[in-house]
């Protein structure tokens, strides 16, 4: 085989490998991804066994602990539908009632069970300044 042809073959092999790998990556990302849903969407769409990223606010007065399991409710940002979650694992420090959280959950029976250590608290006050309306700039 002459060198030019050899290079072409090499290039084709390398590019095809890259394409195959990239397709695998892209395919698995879609199948492994968990959709981000609000509680009201989750109530409508949840299928047992699939995992979802639940985003919402922790319901006031809903947090209580039973041994290693933390129970809390998550509701839409505007209130309304609340979903009870049974969660085990690390609880981030800023976790509070009324705070916005993201937790990966799966429907098991009638319950939503949080994936271990998946709880993230979005703390609205963290790093941010107060809304400009409260301040007068001079």
């Amino acid at each position: 085989m002459n060198p030019a042809r050899k290079r072409t073959v090499r290039l084709v092999v390398a590019l095809s490998t890259a394409v195959v790998l990239a397709s695998a990556l892209i395919y698995t990302s879609f199948s492994a991804a968990s959709p981000a849903l609000t509680p009201s969407q989750l109530v409508r769409q949840a299928q047992p066994g699939r995992s979802y990223q639940l985003t919402g606010t922790v319901v006031q007065g809903s947090v209580h602990r039973e041994g290693a399991v933390l129970h809390f409710g998550v509701e839409d940002r505007v209130g309304g539908t609340a979903i009870p979650v049974d969660y085990t694992g690390t609880v981030p420090d800023p976790f509070r009632e009324g705070r916005e959280v993201i937790v990966t959950v799966a429907k098991q029976g009638g319950q939503f069970v949080g994936e271990r250590d998946s709880l993230i608290t979005k703390c609205p006050s963290k790093y941010t300044t107060a809304p400009p309306s409260e301040k007068q700039n001079d």
Binding site: T28, S29, A33, S34, P35, A36, Q53, T104
Partner: peptide, 23 residues
Amino acid sequence: WGTYFPLISKALTGQEASVGPPW
């Protein structure tokens, strides 16, 4: 791809989704 996946999936499927550490 994994980091920007929420944006990619929102653009392609209209549904925001994310991949986790196992992926």
